[in-house]
Design a protein around this nucleic acid. Structure first.
Lengths: 250, 250
DNA sequence: GATCTGCCTTGATGCAGATCAATAGAAGAA
DNA sequence: TTCTTCTATTGATCTGCATCAAGGCAGATC
């Protein structure tokens, strides 16, 4: 029984491996996998815990296995802006840099798969496709960041909220049942109103008001404070301000 | 006489080569250089010309040789947000994607060094350090995008303008005279008021008003509409809202 | 010269979202 | 139970920037 098969079986979707997972698994080569296995270890954090503060020494790179983490920047006077949302399989840390550039916080309970930085860098230098895979992932992050720049710079509060809900809804829908776009989508918000505000460049009061407004208008349904139902996804999409047929980049 | 030396001599700073330039030139290997030389060609654009529209087929990747280009996103109703500023040596295009994700526009007269996409991707697959170099560049872009997210989401109009001027001033200062931080810095704005507004998530009127305000307060001096002088860089930095000692990431 | 056009400035006014403030529910602790 | 704490909602008011509008200036064209 090969080590490779072993590992594939134990980590479905290779969720803890930043280099080969999902569609890329086919590229796996046994000996590289063993090397990655040798330098990896897991860390767990509780919801609300800070993984690392901006500027602190960061002697590892990591990928999210389960849970959600956030990247935020803080100004001297306390103004905060979230600049990234890390979902399972997303990568944190930068090869070649030993200090964290952002505050990394566990929003939910979080498990990360860490690689000590030095050996990871050495492995990357000797293993071409690690850099190639990281490049792909980084380009995706860059696209997401730029989409968020449009949101932050030009969208109204209502459009911002709708966009965030749409992103979470679509992600949840694709995870749960790839072919169920017809019916209503229900999910738990993984963010507090304040975290949503930090992500959207708003205040928590405005977030709350716009959530209420979307509820009043029948775009969403709230069950408690966190559980959201989208009766008709297209109706929500109408509110985001995005092109109706956007996102066909090949 | 090696081809390598030839090319280094003719393109100072390797400004037209996205993979090895500046400090990375040391990595150059002659045969790869020849291969890159074989698939590259130049394109020129006049100020104001559109290089490519979002969604259009883009059969090349490229790097800026001289001039400035911008990446912008436009919403259906015409709201525009600039999401990237491409300076000499910056890279455009995405390996593995054949459609442009943004409008690319020449802000000044522009020369780009282009590589047909297919051969470039093949070269990248067979030449590890191309992906590694592109990864570094993309990570830098991602950091810049995230810094801009903080600006768009949380900074005031005055802070936004000051931040933009500071970025341009520091870049110009470092290009012209690396060790002349003491005196005043003078440069020509490469952007119109409207382009500044698109970059900063403001209207052109607000940009104009804030420029006037900074002039009134002695932070900047205007000579004509475009030539800007920063008498005391630290005074401008004070207005950006950034940490006074920011940016020491190693 | 006159006129046009692109770019910029400045003023008057309006409004979206921030700010300040009060209240409420839910979960946990004493 | 009651108190505390955390999170969320909602109202009243304020303000920074957008919007609408009217020139101004410099370079191009005739």
């Amino acid at each position: 029984m090969s080590v490779h098969r072993d590992i594939r079986a134990s980590n479905q979707d290779c969720g803890d491996c930043p280099i080969r997972h999902r569609a890329v698994c086919a590229r796996c080569e046994e000996d590289e996998l063993i090397q990655l296995e040798q330098i990896k270890y897991y860390r767990s954090y509780q919801a609300g815990q800070t993984v690392i503060w901006s500027g602190d020494k960061m002697d590892f790179v990591a990928s999210v296995v389960t849970g959600i983490a956030t990247l935020t920047q803080t100004m001297e006077d306390g103004r905060r802006q979230m600049v990234g949302l890390l979902l399972p399989s997303d990568f944190v840390g930068r090869p070649g840099r030993s200090a964290a550039a952002y505050d990394v916080t566990a929003t939910t309970d979080l498990v990360m798969c860490c690689f000590r930085r030095k050996p990871f860098e050495e492995l990357m230098a000797s293993t071409p496709h690690i850099a190639q895979r990281l490049l792909e992932m980084t380009l995706d992050e860059l696209d997401a960041a730029r989409e968020w720049m449009l949101l932050l710079g030009r969208k109204t509060a209502r459009e911002k909220i709708a966009s965030l809900l749409a992103i979470i809804a679509r992600r949840d829908a694709s995870l749960k049942e790839p072919r169920a776009n017809a019916g209503a989508i229900t999910f738990d918000l993984p963010l507090t109103r304040e975290e949503m505000a930090d992500y959207l460049g708003l205040t928590l009061e405005t977030v709350s008001r716009q959530m209420s407004a979307l509820k009043r208008d029948g775009i969403i349904t709230l069950d408690g404070k966190r559980q959201v139902t989208i009766p008709v996804l297209d109706a929500l999409m109408e509110e985001t301000g995005d092109d109706s047929d956007g996102g066909f980049l090949v």
